[in-house]
Computed example of a mutant assay.
Amino acid sequence: MVRIFSIIVSALLILSLAGCAWLNRQADETEGWDVTQLYNAGAREMRSGNYQRAIEYYEKLETRYPFGRYAMQAQLDIAYAHYKNDEPEAAIVAADRFIKQHPQNPFVDYAYYLKGIVNYNRSVGFLDRFIPTDPSQRDPGSALDAFNDFSVLVQRFPDSRYAEDARQRMLYLRNNLAKNEIHVARYYMRRGAYIAAAGRANHVIERFQRTSAVEEALEILVAAYKALGEQELAATAERVLTLNREAGRFIEDTPPPDQIGLTQRVWDYLRLDEN
């Protein structure tokens, strides 16, 4: 009797597992799809703004068809979809994976550009989208990362279609990084740390020439030297400040670059739509 009961339980368990497997196969609508069907489904979800769903299609494509143009394009689209889905870390990981796997690929410039765009925007919070803020007062970490990403792009791929936009963003970032140093210098001045303030001001003058922050740096330098009793150094800094003002050498703030539409796909490169 016990043996019969065990056989019945085993049979029911097998049937249950088989039923689950059948249901799983039924639930996967993509079973049997070819590479173009998977890619087109992902592209369709991307255009509709369903980025998580698009990622799922692209990941299935990579798993089933890991070689060829579609797999390569899927990797780039996954990075972009994570970016659009407010997942900056995942976007950077995906872009880095493409760069590592395809360092000589003619489209690797796009991956560097995307990394720069992600870091460029990642410190912008919800309120920043509606309330004007001074980006130079934010943590400069992401700005430095973006600057470095764009720098690699323009150095390695000076003729890239993304290079000019990257250069404009680098100018804007450099100006904000300089102004961040000014904020720190003014903080030191308020705290009475005049040597530290003078050090920050000199750093701006030496490392961030041709930015709007240089004029403020000289002003801080004059005030810091006077507070330290270094009248000769203060007079020298003030003379440099006056001469440059009279000559009109100080420049205005670098305006933020236009938010050009980031290329969602590189169809014109890969010509996937001609297959």
Rank of each mutant, 00 (worst) to 15 (best):
H203P: 01
R156E: 10
N202V: 08
I8H: 01
Y39K: 09
N121G: 01
G68K: 10
Q104M: 13
K60G: 04
Q168E: 05
K84T: 02
A111V: 14
A94W: 07
V204R: 02
W22A: 07
D34Q: 03
V222M: 08
R53V: 08
A79N: 03
L15W: 10
I14F: 15
A217P: 03
S6R: 12
Y187I: 10
V9Y: 07
E246V: 13
L12Q: 02
T236D: 15
R190P: 04
R64C: 06
R167P: 07
L12N: 01
R191Y: 06
L262R: 04
V152H: 10
I131A: 02
L173T: 02
K226G: 06
P140S: 08
Q26T: 10
T263D: 14
F147C: 02
D77T: 01
A146M: 10
L233W: 05
W267E: 11
F150K: 06
E215P: 05
L114P: 02
G42D: 03
R265Q: 06
W267Q: 07
R44H: 07
K226N: 10
P140G: 09
P103Y: 12
L17I: 07
D139G: 01
A163S: 08
A196C: 11
W267G: 07
R167F: 09
Y57W: 14
P103H: 09
R191T: 04
M1N: 04
R161C: 09
F250N: 05
S212F: 11
A54F: 08
R265S: 10
R47E: 12
I99G: 03
I117C: 03
Y112Q: 08
Y51D: 00
C20E: 02
A79Y: 05
A11P: 06
D145M: 13
W33A: 08
L153K: 06
P88G: 04
L177P: 00
G141L: 13
E31N: 08
I92V: 15
